[in-house]
Simulated scan of single mutants.
Amino acid sequence: MYVLVTYDVSTIDKEGRKRLRQIAKICLNYGQRVQNSVFELLVDPAQWAECKAKLLEAYKPEEDSMRFYYLGANWHRRVEHAGAKPGVDISGPLII
């Protein structure tokens, strides 16, 4: 399952900045950052359920927003990249 996660976290106070870091860390545990508040996740349904639960627990619905885009199995045809930063094949090998 290929999911695009986007979020907007209020950083007016210290608590908001902490939430922002926490949400980014959760997303990094399941996928890769492609923009400041945009992550691509290639996960199985169990991983997605776990990730989504953690994200919804971390954010504050009165101040923050989250969007999840489900791109499905044919995501290669649905994702197009243009611009300076090269696109990364999330299903390719990971070199650390």
Rank of each mutant, 00 (worst) to 15 (best):
K18F: 08
E62H: 10
E80H: 14
I90K: 00
F68L: 13
C27H: 03
V5W: 00
T11G: 05
V34S: 10
K52M: 04
E50C: 11
G16Q: 03
M1V: 07
I26Q: 03
R17L: 12
R17D: 07
G72V: 11
Y70H: 13
H76K: 13
E63Y: 09
G87M: 08
M1E: 11
G92A: 13
Y30F: 12
L20V: 06
V9E: 06
T11S: 08
V38Y: 03
Y30L: 02
A46K: 15
D64Q: 08
K85Q: 10
Y7E: 09
P45C: 09
K54P: 00
A58N: 06
L42W: 00
L71D: 06
Y7P: 01
G83I: 09
K85I: 10
S37W: 03
S91H: 01
F39T: 02
Q22A: 07
D8R: 12
Y7N: 04
G87N: 10
E50A: 09
L41Q: 09
R19V: 07
A58E: 10
I90Y: 00
G87S: 14
H76W: 07
F39Q: 01
P93Q: 15
G92Y: 06
R67W: 01
L41G: 01
L56V: 02
S37C: 07
T11W: 05
I95H: 11
H81T: 15
T6F: 04
A24T: 05
K25C: 07
T6A: 10
E62Q: 15
E63V: 03
W75T: 03
E40F: 00
V88M: 07
N36P: 05
C27G: 02
P61T: 08
D13M: 10
M1P: 12
A53P: 04
D8S: 12
D89H: 04
E57H: 13
H76E: 14
G83K: 12
L4K: 05
P86H: 11
E63N: 11
A84L: 12
V3W: 01
I90D: 00
E57D: 14
K14N: 14
A49V: 08
A24W: 05
R19A: 09
K18D: 12
T11H: 07
G92T: 02
R33I: 04
G31D: 02
V34Q: 14
L20W: 09
Q35R: 13
L20T: 06
M1D: 09
F68M: 14
F68K: 12
V88E: 09
W75V: 07
R17S: 13
P86R: 15
V38I: 06
R19L: 06
S91Y: 00
I23C: 06
K18M: 12
Q22N: 11
L55W: 04
V3H: 11
P45Y: 07
Y70V: 11
P61D: 08
L41W: 02
S37E: 10
A82W: 12
R19N: 09
E15Y: 06
N36F: 10
E50D: 14
L55N: 06
G92L: 03
V5N: 00
V43Y: 00
S37V: 04
A53V: 06
M1K: 09
V3E: 10
N36H: 13
S10P: 04
V5T: 08
R33T: 05
L4Y: 01
S91P: 00
V9K: 05
K54L: 12
N36I: 07
